[in-house]
């Protein structure tokens, strides 16, 4: 994370274009410019700036936005985070709910119509841009059927349904591609597991098909899948960045893109850092989960 934050800090100093000029578009007297540069600490050496920023980040202080109302970046990120987390969580749930049964069905009925259907769905899911799916969902469910709101976000505190109704469409948009990857993984690892000797033993013991699948095949088939879920988290985060912008949800993705448009260094730095922290953390959780479901793996 140290290297990550260093990279994030120095990269953005290369940004061509002058945020000061942008901020002072109308009232650009040289004195005002000087004062602003001094207030933001941009007159100090780069290393000093970095040190200040870095020690600040360690204490949860990401500096203040240099655009608009100069809010602390930490505040902006903290109001955005729950939205992105809600979205990621729901997308994940939707993906699993679709992928696990789809994967099992296509593995147990290999080459059947259902299998072909699942495989086609997986290909489509992988190939569909998530923001396009988002637009299609808006056209159908918000614009025409008017079942669900097209934009915005309501916190969970204001009730389950208002929260859910705003998040269902974006979550489907993000979760579909994610579920396609997982479904394919489950299918192939399930097929491998079904060939294993212990499955023959289980069948010989006279277990029912159902018990065999749920108790013996699924847990083993899920082991390689869990690792892929870690990688696919990247997809989920990228999806959130784009899809939040379609649904005007002011989550981390929207904050990031607006920050870039406004050349708001501190906000962009903070958002990228938080996104990658989230990514690294989720991969760590996946590793731990891996050890939990596979007793053969031990971290010392």
């Amino acid at each position: 994370m140290l290297a990550v934050s260093t990279l994030v800090f120095f990269m953005i100093r290369l940004v061509p274009g002058d945020p000061i000029a942008a901020m002072l578009a109308d009232s650009g007297s040289p004195e005002a410019r000087e004062a602003l540069i001094r207030r933001l600490g941009l007159d100090q050496p780069l290393l000093v700036q970095f040190w200040k920023w870095f020690t600040g980040v360690l204490q949860g202080d990401f500096g203040a936005s240099i655009y608009g109302s100069n809010q602390p970046v930490a505040n902006i990120l903290m109001t955005a985070l729950p939205k992105t987390l809600s979205l990621a969580f729901l997308s994940f749930v939707i993906a699993i709910v679709i992928a696990v049964p789809a994967g099992i069905i296509s593995a147990t009925r290999k080459n059947s119509a259902a299998d072909v259907g699942v495989s086609l769905f997986a290909f489509l899911g992988l190939s569909m841009p998530d923001f396009w799916l988002a637009i299609i969902l808006i056209i159908i469910f918000a614009a025409n059927l008017q079942w669900l709101p097209a934009i915005g976000y309501t916190p969970l505190a204001e009730g389950l349904w208002p929260w859910l109704s705003h998040l269902i469409l974006p979550s489907i948009a993000i979760g579909t591609g994610f579920s396609a990857i997982i479904a394919r993984m489950i299918r192939s690892s399930m097929l491998e597991v079904l060939q294993a000797d212990y499955m023959r033993t289980a069948a010989a013991k006279g277990l029912t098909q159902h018990a065999m699948l749920i108790r013996h095949a699924l847990p083993n088939a899920l082991i390689p899948v869990v690792t892929v879920i870690g990688i696919a988290f990247a997809l989920l985060i990228s999806g959130a960045v784009v899809v939040e912008n379609v649904f005007s949800i002011k989550g981390l993705g929207r904050v990031l893109i607006q920050g870039i448009q406004n050349r708001d260094y501190p906000v962009v730095q903070g958002a990228v850092l938080l996104v990658s922290a989230f990514f690294v953390l989720s991969n760590l959780v996946v590793d731990l989960l891996y050890a939990a479901i596979d007793p053969r793996i031990r971290y010392s």
Binding site: A3, M11, I237, S238, V241, S276
Partner: peptide, 20 residues
Amino acid sequence: DLQWAFPNFIIAVYLVAVFG
């Protein structure tokens, strides 16, 4: 490994922000 800490798309977004 450092690149691994970021999702690919976020890197692309960030680089476009940097390069223009």
